[in-house]
Amino acid sequence: MALTELLPSPLRRAFVALGFALTALLFLVLALLAWGQARDDLALQAISPALGIPNAFYTLPTPLLALLVAFRALERALGTLRGGA
């Protein structure tokens, strides 16, 4: 059983929404840092020694995917505050 199940419904929704909001914040920070890494890989034209392909090939998707997770977490936070599950 989650600790939030012991709380009254409005407070439970607030804590669950806070969890989603903190998750979104974490992934926004990840997106920012990953974009810096991808930008550096593009600027330096770094090549993976093992694969022989540009590092940007596998670092560029990370900021985009992190933004998608952050968006989804914010969506869930708003849905939770509006009374959704």
Rank of each mutant, 00 (worst) to 15 (best):
E75F: 07
L51I: 11
Y58A: 00
A73G: 08
G79R: 07
L64T: 08
D41T: 08
L68W: 04
L22T: 13
L65M: 03
N55Y: 06
L3T: 01
G52K: 10
L30E: 03
R72D: 10
R39D: 11
R13H: 12
L68R: 06
T80Q: 11
A56P: 00
A14E: 09
A34R: 14
D40T: 06
L32V: 02
G52P: 08
A66Y: 03
F27R: 04
F27G: 03
P49W: 11
A17V: 05
F27A: 02
F57Q: 10
G19N: 13
A24E: 12
Q45H: 08
L74N: 14
L44S: 05
L6T: 00
P54S: 01
Q45K: 08
A43N: 01
L25V: 04
L22W: 07
S9L: 15
R72P: 12
D40A: 09
R12P: 08
E75N: 12
L78T: 05
S9I: 13
G19S: 15
L7C: 02
F57N: 08
P8A: 07
A34K: 15
G19D: 07
A14M: 15
F27V: 01
F71C: 11
E5K: 09
A50K: 11
L30G: 00
A24P: 10
P54L: 04
L3W: 03
L67H: 03
A34Q: 09
G36A: 14
G52W: 13
P54C: 02
A31N: 01
L60D: 03
P61Q: 02
L81C: 06
T62I: 05
L18D: 13
Q37G: 12
A70R: 05
T23K: 15
A17N: 13
G79Y: 06
M1L: 11
L78H: 07
L60H: 04
T59L: 04
L25T: 08
A17S: 15
P54H: 05
A14P: 12
T23R: 13
L64W: 03
P63K: 04
R82G: 06
F20Y: 12
I47A: 11
R13C: 10
Y58D: 01
A31Y: 02
D40Q: 11
